[in-house]
Amino acid sequence: MMLAADAPLRRFAGDFVKSPLAVAAALGLLAIILMAVFAGAVAPQNPYNLAEIDILDGSLEPGQEGFTGFTFWLGSDEQGRDMLSAMIYGLRISLFVSFVAVSSAVLVGMTLGLLAAWRGGWIETVIMRTVDIQLSFPALLVALLLLAALGKGVDKVIIALILVQWAYFARTVRAAALVEIKKDYVMAARAAALPERRILFGHVLPNVMPPVLVIATVQVANAIAIEASLSFLGVGVPITEPSLGLLIANGFDYLLSGRYWISFYPGVALLVTLVCINVVGDHVRDILNPRLQR
């Protein structure tokens, strides 16, 4: 619809590399993801293996050498944990939580959105009213109160994130699907008496994917930020699985005494991750937006 029919992916890639900023952000994001996935191999220390950390190395400043000759490039926390390693492991938890949450939210939202567009009637009314109501409340607040009821835990944070994010996808998919359903190819598929499921998932679904992907990118960034905020407020991930947000929260107590690095560097990592995702997302949206096409 918005891209040339012959080679949409190549056109898209061609448009994408025109912006050096977006390419840099995409590469940065790739590096961040690889670092998180291979945390065990990349991190200089396993920060949660008690045999590897030593309390005598506690509260070292960035760049200082520890008791055993190990250099703490980004300093260490109270327990002598290397902050760089803790950050890489924290990044893994942050990314894992948001990725699982957003992909589940896409599945839920997409199914309900397609259903609403296809069936119409009271099913559509109920689904879309729920979406309207849900989206009129800020995601952070809804997630906060859900977690106040559910309790702490990685699984619970994921549930809360799915519950606050599915509505965005349901709304987008329904709007896009309503347009697609009226098109000739769907009519043809209907005339050929293909089963409903096949028309919806085989024909309509691939054509509503571009806007979903744009929103999913932005929502991953949102999910990371919301998870971090929840963990900071003390209702997110448990202390045994500290995400970046929890690392920052733990450093808050030391901030006032000038030991800034415990909060500062995890926050920088969080910020860089979010900026990369948002830059990539913004650029993809600009490419796919027909109103900005020259």
């Binding site: 930020a225 905020s229 900071f232 407020l233 920052i248 926050g267 910020l271 913004d282």
Partner: peptide
Amino acid sequence: VIGFSTPNFWQGLM
């Protein structure tokens, strides 16, 4: 973009 991306609480800490 940076203002949009910076988590509120970390910005406060900084």
